[in-house]
Amino acid sequence: MSILKVDLDGSKLEAWADILSTRGLKNAIRRAVDKSATAARKVALKIIAQDVGVPVARIKPGVTKLRRTTQGDLSASFTADKLRIGILNVSGAKIGAGGLTASTHRLTGGGSASLKIRNAFLVHANGGTFVAFRKSRERLPIKGVYAEHPGTAMGQEGAAARTAWEKEANKQIAERLPTEIQKQLLAEGLPYVAPPDND
């Protein structure tokens, strides 16, 4: 699960809380978090797709819609799950006499960013086709070759998609929270005065 976690200046929130109604402040925070998480999720989808090497539409089934804030829970989240994407769906993947040549984890890096499996072959089963290779000299077992899961892209520390999500979420909340607070102050008929910096 990818949860929006940011650092906020508590002194500014306390100053706003002194003049805003409790419900109004909470609603302003909710709007800021929901909008920030929505924007950051779009960035994460784009980076996951680039890292895997497939269109965003191919990634969406493996990423849930945003779970928005509630009055009792000011967090927003989405889950990136395991999604089986055949390696041949990855842009530039090809298989021939020399085996499989493909790439995934393109932005994050690692061995799969330049994937070569000499003894890979196609398997036709249940109306579909996938790439596999034998784990030993025996005919069985075989192992299928799949692209990176969206869950892996978001779950690994330092992975491109996770880094992009965290950076965008923090940027968005820093920009949106003061704006939503100002809107709420105006809605309650209060003048907007930015809390003083305590640096």
Rank of each mutant, 00 (worst) to 15 (best):
P141I: 13
A132M: 08
T152V: 05
P61F: 07
G128C: 04
S2V: 05
G86F: 09
R137S: 07
E188I: 07
Y192L: 02
R68Q: 04
N170P: 02
V123Q: 03
R23N: 08
D18M: 13
F133C: 00
A125E: 15
A174G: 12
K42Y: 10
D7S: 14
G72T: 15
A93H: 02
F130W: 15
R137K: 14
V193L: 06
N126T: 12
I3G: 05
P195Q: 11
L185D: 03
Y192I: 01
N198S: 14
T179Q: 14
G62A: 00
L115R: 06
K82R: 15
L4M: 13
Y146W: 12
D197S: 10
N198R: 13
D18P: 08
K65P: 10
A169P: 09
N126Q: 13
L8H: 03
L190V: 02
L20K: 11
A32W: 14
L8Q: 08
T79I: 09
N198V: 13
A113C: 10
E188Q: 08
L186S: 03
D81G: 05
K5C: 12
V193W: 00
T163G: 00
V145F: 10
S2D: 05
K26R: 12
T22D: 11
Q172A: 06
G24K: 07
A187T: 09
D9W: 09
F121Y: 09
E166S: 04
L45R: 13
G158H: 00
T70L: 10
D34C: 06
A159C: 06
E188K: 06
T69K: 07
D34M: 03
A32G: 07
K82E: 14
G155N: 08
P61Q: 03
V193T: 12
K82N: 12
A132H: 08
R58M: 04
Q156S: 03
N198Y: 02
A37I: 07
N170E: 07
I85Q: 00
A28N: 13
D18N: 12
A15I: 08
L25H: 07
T152I: 00
W16T: 05
K167Q: 04
A32I: 12
G127E: 07
K183P: 10
A39R: 11
G10S: 04
L74D: 03
K94I: 11
I142A: 11
E166F: 00
R68A: 01
T152H: 01
V52A: 08
V6R: 02
G158V: 00
T101I: 14
A93D: 01
V123H: 08
S77P: 04
V63A: 04
G62N: 11
P55S: 10
D199T: 14
V90D: 05
L88F: 06
A120Y: 15
A39C: 02
P191M: 12
A32V: 02
A113F: 04
G72C: 10
S91E: 15
L185G: 01
D51V: 14
T179H: 12
A125W: 01
L122K: 02
E175G: 08
K167D: 04
L107V: 01
A187Y: 10
A39S: 00
S114M: 11
